[in-house]
Design a protein around this nucleic acid. Structure first.
Length: 348
DNA sequence: TAGGCCATCTGGTCCT
DNA sequence: AGGACCAGATGGCCTA
């Protein structure tokens, strides 16, 4: 442990046990804080045979002597000497620390609540398979950017570009989850799927699969965070799909590092709507395999919900976004928002 | 078993 | 003085 203990910090060995979980946190945490005053917090604190009683008995000069004897390399403590810790001071300090701990817990719980709220408004909300905090933030950032881009360009996105924008910088498991939530089979992007596609589609598929950040089946090792720069995805040449995949995210496709992505964004849109991903088929194949994604709630169990991306023969990909955003129910307010956003996109 | 994720404790800093 | 905020440290849990 690298911490240097002051007399105060050492006394805190008698603080309540750490590892409060969401399950166990209750209204009586403060009471437990007071009750469990003899549970060591950290292992090294356990190992360190310095306790409350000892601290109560020793004064600061003794402490300083210990430091000098124990480690010659340590710099001498500077500043005013600490006052002797009387029992009264000790009690005050303990109470202060307990209150601070309780406040900090509440603060973090509030932060987690906010994060949970955020999880519910970004695509792919699932109570059973929660996004991690960092992935939630990344996905939210991408989502905001994507929606901003929709507003900026006034165009409805094609699904592929939209998903790519959403998945930028996400880990592979999260990418798979997003794809699953969108019922977009990650294998769609893999070369082994290409035999079912015409040559020009194979090209596109190969392009995707060649990316370091390719969609892969779940279970494969995921690269570490930070290495999944999906910016490469945006380098896929749109013409590989012909006009069928008209690049909605032009700026992203051409310059994923542009400030438009990481820079200041439009005011966040916390909306759930029924997007209508325009898809203009340019070939018979694409006409036959145009996006049709009418999700069934029952089939939206994450990775299980991998309906074929290319099914049906419609030219539009009508995706009830309430299923994308959250397939575990929406409030009336959210449904109203859905309808409003849907109207916007159908008007555009 | 290693690594990721998380909750919690803690001390420092800033602000009221 | 006390609260909010932050970052570092730590240990538990889970999964590949």
């Amino acid at each position: 442990m690298t911490k240097s203990y002051t007399e105060e910090s050492m006394m805190l060995e008698s603080q309540p046990s750490a590892n409060w979980t969401d399950k166990c946190h209750s209204s009586s945490q403060d009471e437990r804080d007071v009750e469990n005053t003899n549970v060591p917090m950290h292992k090294d604190m356990e190992d360190d045979d310095v306790g409350l009683n000892r601290l109560e008995d020793e004064d600061d000069e003794e402490e300083e002597e210990e430091e000098e004897d124990g480690d010659d390399t340590k710099p001498k403590r500077r500043g005013p000497k600490k006052k002797k810790m009387t029992k009264a001071r000790l009690q005050r300090f303990k109470m202060r620390r307990m209150k601070a701990n309780a406040r900090e817990r509440n603060r973090m719980h509030g932060l987690n609540d906010a994060l949970e709220s955020l999880r519910k408004v970004v695509p792919c909300y699932s109570k059973t398979q929660k996004l991690s905090k960092i992935e939630t933030l990344r996905l939210a950032k991408n989502y905001i950017w994507a929606l901003s881009e929709i507003l900026r360009s006034g165009k409805s996105p094609d699904l592929m570009s939209f998903v790519q924008a959403l998945c930028k910088g996400l880990s592979q498991p999260t990418t798979n989850l997003v794809a699953g939530c969108l019922q977009l089979n990650p294998r769609t992007f893999l070369p082994e799927q290409s035999q079912e596609m015409p040559p020009h589609m194979q090209t596109a598929s190969a392009s995707f699969s060649a990316l370091p950040y390719s969609y892969q089946t779940p279970g494969l090792p995921s690269p570490p965070y930070g290495t999944m720069d999906s910016s490469h995805i945006f380098h896929v040449k749109p013409h590989a799909y012909g006009s069928a995949l008209e690049p909605f995210f032009d700026t992203a496709l051409t310059d994923c590092t542009s400030p438009s992505f990481d820079g200041p964004l439009s005011p966040p849109l916390s909306v759930n709507g029924n997007f209508s991903f325009k898809h203009e088929p340019s070939s018979e194949f694409e006409k036959n395999y145009a996006f049709t994604m009418h999700y069934q709630a029952a089939g939206l169990a994450g990775a299980q919900g991998h309906a074929s991306l290319y099914a049906g023969s419609t030219q539009r990909c009508d995706i009830p976004m309430e299923n994308i955003m959250s397939y575990e129910g929406h409030s009336h307010h959210e449904r109203v928002m859905n309808a409003q956003l849907n109207a916007i996109f159908h008007d555009s």
